[in-house]
Write a protein that binds this DNA or RNA. Structure first.
Length: 860
RNA sequence: GGGGGUGUGGUGGAAUGGUAGACGCAACAGACUUAAAAUCUGUCGUCCGUAAUGGAUGUGCGAGUUCGAGUCUCGCCACCCCCA
């Protein structure tokens, strides 16, 4: 008999036993309701970190709870295994990316297995295996067939460190690469794109279906898609046949246009520039090229521009206005040209003030004579009444917007237009370790898709990684040169590989039927399990992965299943029903504010007054995301080695609500370990009941039973609703405390308490509860037990605590027999000494009774 | 500038409009021990009184709604995130 809690022995024993029993193999035969629990799969960097642990433990608790509640649960794991670090390892250490990746996978898998996760490992996938990327390529071909994959020349984001292009979503707010952190450059290149813009409207409107997603993530996606409703208006150029098309969301301000601006890159720029402005325009274009997009459009930056010397005509007024070029207009957005309305746009106002361009107000806060308007000191961007606008004067600006678009359409000045901020997704990468794009370039036939039967296009293995001279695939003649599948003439393979975000955009569709080598998946099986009932991952994917995955789901839904489109592959619109974005794991970070250097915690002697061990100056203490460069990482192995994984799981779940950042604190981990030890002793000290359960329960038994059933109710609600694991763990503690203090240790109710406590704790601390389950004489795994139901009758107390308030102020409490009858409660309250003390000599004007809770006396 | 979020003890955090601070951590006091650890018991927002089962005050600030506001409404302030 074990007398002390020894996590190490228990944990490895049960992990092995569960594997042997196939306890977590997915139930594919029963008719139970399904539940698909999914964590965002990891990149196999080589080491598990605390962020992973938090992510997978959350999903595991959900999966375990659902299983006990009688669901068949799909809880798989896999590897987002293509990507640059593998290739960098090859360059730096001469190890092949595949070898490096599979070694990391093996190591991380063994680390994951120590977390006691209820994962079905039979469904493990790795995106870098040909069995998987064959289907990534298959999807690409379907995209191509459907006109959703195409090549185009354009100005693209170039990461100078990773030596590859990036999609817009992969460049952060500071203009840096999401991966390397390098400042992204602009380059003109021919690249492959997916036409995500075709689905912009669906991606936007279907956000409404996602009531199980955090509001924040939905807002971020809506902002990213960036729908704006406005118009394209055409401004003829004086002395030329071309017109400048501007996109505007404010057609109601068209009578206030005082200039038109072209993006410096706009093809018309060169054409319209007059000879005496040519030098200035050329110089300006060269300068703008050196600026990042962020610098160009940030509102606090000065707006700069030069006139082209040409004039355009405002079709509404017939007035001639100058054509400028300016840095704040981007060729990639809208039509690459805007109309300048300084009176009603903040940036235009600044620009016009700077270059002394006229400012004409055409919207006023209230209807008034335009001659009375005071000169504007800032742009007026609100809605209002139209002035100075010919026949539209007097309209409110919202109505005017519609009227002006109608007028433009009738007179051929332009048309209403919906514009999205979302750009097409650039998916080609000039790197080796990714899924090859299955296309062949033939001098005669052009770009030809690889026939489906020839998939996968395997990555060649005999490749040299020098880190110089671009994509190593392009240099491998034996691989590049192939006969054209269409005409047989010598042709060349596409050497770009796909963005790794392509691989991860559909993996969740593969798990339900992971071993299928005939089809991407059997639609019957995938449609049965999908959508994912609970998806858990980091907020950093709010736009990136989650937007791409939604896009893929819609496209795959719209593919036929190979029978000419009769059968749809998917029968749902959205892949992830509920989304939980877990917070970061942070830990204490020491920084010397003078030198800006991070200090290793091990070298900080006095944690209360930390000082730099070298300079002796006081250190700045913060909580930051764990990272190597900040020396603040906590290795999961260390914690597990010291306390066991059950303690780590409980701590992570208890310390903070799942969506908030979690501050790692060793003392709190200790506290959690102490709780598990208390729990162990409590269960081990329990003896079989010696009294019988027949007859009336004693007060102590009733109280304990109420506590037990309250805990069942509270924990079930915490796990079924908004995932409040922290309060669920605290309920476990309360129940444990209540049992410890209970005065009926030989009663069957006490035994019920111990058993319920173990069942309720099982999803959280699976190893310890399993061990105790066996030690207390049960057979079968605790994880196959049914989740407990609470008995509403047990929650009813004989006596309740009634709060006495006078004038809304709490004055005390009394114990009264439980009743819902207001008159009885009021009578009890009136009799109490508390009430008498505070109402003495005053008239009670009104009494408010909240049955079961309180009585409030209003006195005069 | 627009949108979203957050603000509660020394600290992490709890509170269907109904006793604010559950449950932990830290701290302090005590028991046990030769001693320490572990364990157990107690105290723990602030101020006043300290005989209390006492009083006042208290959830960023200011108003409002309500019998009653951490919670709802309005206006500020600070910080964070996203978009410009």
């Amino acid at each position: 008999m074990e007398n002390t809690y020894n996590p190490a022995g228990i944990e490895s024993k049960w992990q092995q036993s569960w594997t042997e029993q196939n306890l977590y193999k997915t139930d594919t035969t029963s008719s139970k309701p399904k539940f698909y629990a999914l964590s965002m799969f990891p990149y196999p960097s080589g080491n598990l970190h605390m962020g992973h642990v938090r992510n997978y433990v959350i999903t595991d608790v959900v999966a375990r709870h659902k299983r006990m509640q009688g669901h068949r649960v799909l809880h798989p794991m896999g590897w987002d295994a293509f990507g640059l670090p593998a290739e960098n390892a090859a360059i730096e250490r001469g190890i092949h990316p595949a070898t490096w990746t599979y070694q990391n996978i093996a190591h991380m898998r063994s680390q994951l297995q120590k977390l006691g996760l209820s994962i079905d490992w039979d469904r493990e996938i790795a995106t870098c295996s040909p069995e998987y990327y064959r289907w990534t390529q298959w999807i690409f071909l379907k995209f191509y067939e459907g006109g959703l994959a195409y090549q185009k020349d354009g100005m693209v984001n170039w990461d100078p460190i990773d030596q590859t292009v990036l999609a817009n979503e992969q460049v952060d707010g500071d203009g840096r690469s999401w991966r390397s952190g390098a400042i992204v450059e602009k380059k003109a290149l021919k690249q492959w794109y997916f036409k995500i813009t075709e689905y912009a409207e669906q991606l936007l409107t279907d956000l409404d279906q996602l009531s199980g997603w955090p509001e924040k993530v939905r807002t971020m996606q809506a902002n990213w898609i960036g729908k704006s409703i406005g118009a394209n208006l055409e401004f003829p150029i004086v002395g030329a046949s071309e017109k400048i098309t501007v996109f505007t969301t404010r057609p109601d301000t068209v009578y206030g246009v005082s200039y038109v601006v072209l993006a410096p890159e706009h093809p018309l720029t060169v054409q319209v520039t007059t000879s005496d402005q040519k030098a200035a325009v050329d110089a300006f274009i060269a300068e703008v090229k050196r600026q990042s997009e962020i610098d160009r459009t940030a509102e606090d930056q000065p707006k700069r521009g030069v006139p082209t010397g040409a004039m355009a005509i405002n079709p509404f007024t017939g007035a001639e206005v100058p054509i400028w070029i300016a840095d704040y207009v981007l060729y990639e957005y809208g039509t690459g040209a805007v109309m300048g309305v300084p009176a009603h746009d903040v940036r235009d106002f600044k620009f016009a003030t700077q270059y002394q361009l006229p400012i004409t107000q055409v919207i006023a806060a209230t209807a008034q004579d335009p001659s009375n308007l005071a000169p504007l000191t800032a742009a007026y961007t609100e809605a209002g009444t139209i002035v100075n606008s010919s026949q539209f004067d007097g309209l409110d600006s919202v109505t005017a917007k519609k009227s002006i678009i109608e007028y433009a359409e009738q007179h051929g000045y332009g048309n209403g237009k919906i514009q999205y901020r979302l750009r097409d997704w650039l998916i080609s990468r000039q790197r080796y370790w990714g899924a090859p794009i299955p296309m062949i370039h033939c001098p005669k036939c052009g770009t030809v898709p690889v026939p489906e039967a020839d998939l996968p296009v395997r990555l060649p293995e005999d490749v040299e990684f020098t880190g110089k001279g671009g994509n190593p695939l392009a240099q491998l003649e034996s691989w590049v040169n192939v006969p054209c599948p269409s005409c047989g003439a010598p042709a060349k393979r596409e050497t770009d590989t796909m963005d790794t975000f392509v691989d991860s955009s559909w993996y969740f569709l593969r798990y339900p039927d992971a071993g299928n080598d005939e089809q991407i998946f059997d639609p019957k099986i995938t449609n049965d399990w999908m959508p994912v009932d609970q998806y858990v991952g980091g907020i950093e994917h709010a736009v990136l992965h989650l937007l791409y995955a939604r896009f893929f789901t819609k496209i795959v839904r719209d593919f036929g299943a190979g029978d000419g489109g009769k059968t749809k592959l998917l029968n749902f619109d959205e892949p992830f029903k509920y989304l939980l974005t877990q917070g970061m794991v942070q830990s204490t970070t020491y920084k010397n504010p003078q030198t800006g250097k991070y200090i290793e915690p091990a070298t900080v002697l006095d944690r209360a007054h930390p000082t730099d061990p070298v300079t002796g100056s006081a250190l700045e203490v913060t909580f930051d995301k764990m990272s190597k460069s900040k020396y603040n990482g906590i290795a999961p192995e260390e914690v597990i080695g010291k306390y066991g994984v059950d303690t780590a799981r409980m701590f992570i779940l208890f310390k903070a609500p799942p969506e908030k950042d979690l501050e790692w604190d060793d003392a709190d981990v200790e506290g959690q370990f102490r709780f598990l030890n208390r729990l162990w002793r409590l269960v081990m000290a329990a003896k079989p009941a010696t009294t019988s359960s027949s007859g009336e329960l004693s007060k102590s038994e009733k109280d304990l039973r109420r506590f037990i059933h309250h805990a069942i109710q509270a924990i079930t609600e915490d796990l079924d609703g908004d995932y409040q694991f922290n309060t669920a763990v605290s309920e476990l503690m309360k129940l444990s405390n209540a049992i410890t203090d209970a005065d009926c240790k030989d009663s069957p109710i006490y035994a019920e308490g111990i058993e319920t406590l173990l069942i309720l704790a099982a999803p959280f601390a699976p190893h310890m509860t399993e061990e105790l389950w066996q030690l207390t004489g049960h057979t079968g795994s605790i994880h196959e037990q049914s989740w407990r139901q609470f008995d509403p009758a047990a929650l009813v107390a004989d006596e309740i605590t009634l709060v006495i308030q006078v004038m809304g102020k709490t004055r005390g409490t009394i114990q009264v027999p439980a009743t819902k009858d207001s008159a009885t409660l009021e009578a009890h309250a009136r009799e109490s000494a508390i009430t008498k003390k505070f109402t003495e000599g005053k008239e009670i004007k009104k009494v408010i009774v909240v049955p079961g809770k309180l009585v409030n006396f209003i006195i005069g």
